[in-house]
Design a protein around this nucleic acid. Structure first.
Length: 288
DNA sequence: CCAAGTGACTCCACGGAGGC
DNA sequence: GCCTCCGTGGAGTCACTTGG
């Protein structure tokens, strides 16, 4: 069974990165010459802002997610593609999809081949110290000054913005589910927002694949009321989510019409024989 | 009244596009 | 082929708000 995100994943990130990057590119150097992943809570010494780690952790987490999703869809004969480009649905080469589930393995994608879009928003969660070439975990995200992953409000806003951008890009994007994958919980003032985004059909779910983001069994949210956020604790749980997500085609729809127009559209759509045909007619009519 | 949280703003590395 | 510009993404800063 595949492992989800945890301390071992972060050790892997640092060890892999240190084969080509210097410690100064990966860690802050404190006043006492300690090498730290984040500034510890309460640290009052001189601080700098590390930039060189950003691209590395971004690439690592996207690759890691691609590999995880590939295991989820392997049995279906599908592909998980990192950095997928599809200009028609607002995924140009300077802002590609982090990971997509597709019928083909190519970076250049057609809208009809894409089955799901996954936006990865992950970072280093725990604090680490590099000491004598060894990595020591100093504590969870409550013990350092950083605000990792989806706990940052602007990360949430970026994710929402990118999702809406895809939604309004083309009618071809309307059947493609969008999932935001992080490795932290979300803050409580986004609980109702993620549920509303799910109900409105903009985003099909924010999730964390970090089963134990806090040490000592620290309490953290498992799910919101309407499953707009969900923490996956096992690979099987994640597998079930994607099985369900890919099992039946859905359609996103939106518009701004008068009640009179809408009533007319419903009346016309209702003349069709089956529920599916009524839906197809309705979706066709509201975009006219 | 103070600590924690929030969000706008800023920084910087990277990589692609386009000009020369 | 080189250089400059610019968008992207992770992360720190800081003024302000909120809740205990």
């Amino acid at each position: 069974m595949s492992k989800l995100w945890g301390k071992k994943t972060e050790i892997e990130f640092f060890e892999k990165s240190m084969s080509f990057a210097t410690p100064e590119q990966l860690f802050y150097v404190s006043d006492e010459n300690r090498y730290l992943a984040y500034w510890p809570r309460g640290y009052k010494g001189k601080k700098t802002t590390l930039q060189s780690r950003n691209a590395l952790i971004g690439d690592f987490t996207e690759r890691w997610t691609r590999d995880l999703i590939q295991k989820v869809v392997n049995s279906k004969g599908l592909f998980a593609v990192q950095g997928a480009i599809c200009k028609e649905i607002a995924l140009p080469n300077n802002s590609p999809a982090d990971v997509v589930i597709s019928k083909t393995g190519s970076v250049h994608q057609k809208p009809e081949d894409i089955l799901a879009i996954i936006e990865v928003k992950m970072s280093v969660v725990w604090n680490w110290e590099l000491k004598d070439d060894k990595l020591i975990c100093l504590g969870d995200y409550k013990t350092h000054q950083g605000n990792p992953g989806l706990l940052r409000s602007d990360s949430m806003l970026k994710a929402i913005g990118k999702s809406i951008n895809i939604r309004v890009s083309s009618f071809k994007a309307s059947r493609i589910p969008i999932v935001i994958m992080g490795n932290t919980p979300i803050t409580n003032n986004y609980y109702s927002k993620v549920d509303q985004l799910k109900i409105a059909g903009i985003v099909q779910g924010f999730c964390s694949i970090n089963p134990e983001p806090l040490d000592d069994n620290g309490e953290n949210i498992k799910k919101t009321k309407e499953n707009g956020f969900y923490r996956y604790d096992h690979f099987n749980e994640l597998q079930e989510f994607f099985d369900n997500l890919l099992s039946e085609e859905r359609s996103f729809f939106s518009s701004m019409k008068s009640k009179k127009e809408l009533g007319h559209i419903i009346e016309l759509a209702n003349k069709e024989d089956s529920y599916e045909k009524k839906a197809e007619r309705f979706l066709k009519l509201i975009k006219e």
